[in-house]
Amino acid sequence: MKLSPSEKLLCYIVMVAFTIILIAPIAWLLSSSFKDQLGIFQSPPVLVTANPTLDNFKEVLGDKQFIAAFWNSMIIGVSTVIITMLFATPAAYGLSRMRSKAKVGLLSWVLLVRAAPGMVYIVPYFIAFNQIGLMDTKSGLVLINSVFTIPLAIWIMIAFFDAVPKEVEEAAHVDGATRIQTLLRVALPMAAPGVASTAILVFIFSWNEFLFALTMTRIDARTAAIAILDYMAFEGTAWGKVAAAGILILLPVLIFSIFIRKYLVQSAAGAVKE
C-alpha cells in the first residue's frame, strides 16, 4: 500500500518527535559528563561545554568503592547467568516438549512467579539473609536474582525450543539418544542463538536489579547501580560524576543489547504471542 505524501509526513513527524524525546535526556547525561561543576551550573546551560573535561570519568574510575561495585555487578551478573541457564535450559526444553495437562499448570505458575514484583519477596528474604549470613554477599544477590531470571529464561526459551523441528529429534531418539543427550546434541545447538540471547538478557536483568542490591548489601557486595547513589548524597549532588558513572553503568548493557538486538525483540515477542 502506497502512502500519500501527507501520510508520509505524518509518519516522519511522529517518529522524529518521539526520537527527540527519547534522545534528549540521554544526550544531556552525556553532555553533562564532560562538564566541570562550573559548566554544569552555567546560566543559561549549554549542550556542548566550552571546556570539556575528562575529570569526571577519571574521578569515577579512580574511586575504589565504585570500581569494586562495578566488579561486583559483573561477578553477580555472570554467576546469575550460569545458575539460571543450568536450571532454566532443561526446564524450558522439557516444557516445550511436554504434552500432558500438567504443562498449562506449570506454565501459568512460571508466568505468575515471573510477574510478581520484587517487593513481594523482600521481607522473608531480608529476615532469612540475616539469619543465615547471606546479607551483603554476592551469592545472596545471585540467589535472589534467580527468583526472577529463572522463570524469565524458561518462558523465553520455550519459544526457541518450540521452533526446533521435532523430526530431527525423532531421528536422534531412534539412534538411541536419551532425552538429555537429545537436548545437548540436537536441540541446544539449533536453538543456540536464542539461548545465548536469553543468557545476555539474564545478565542485563541482573546488572539492572536495584531493590535487593539496595536492601541486602552493606559495602562489600554493593553493585554499581547502588554505588552511584554516593555521588547524589554528599555536599550537593555532584552531577558531573553522576553523569559519568551513569554512562559507565549503561555502557555494558548497551553493547550487549546491540549484539542481540535481533533476538531481543524476538524473544520478548515470543513471550507475548498468543
Partner: peptide
C-alpha cells in the same frame, strides 16, 4: 528504540533527574 528498555532503571531515574534540574537541566 531498544535503548530505554535496557538502561538500568536507576540510571533512567538519574537521567531524568538531571534533565529537569532547575537551572542546570536540559
Amino acid at each position: 528504540f531498544l535503548l530505554p528498555a535496557v538502561i538500568p532503571p536507576a540510571v533512567s531515574g538519574l537521567v531524568w533527574k538531571l534533565f529537569i534540574v532547575p537551572g542546570a537541566g536540559g
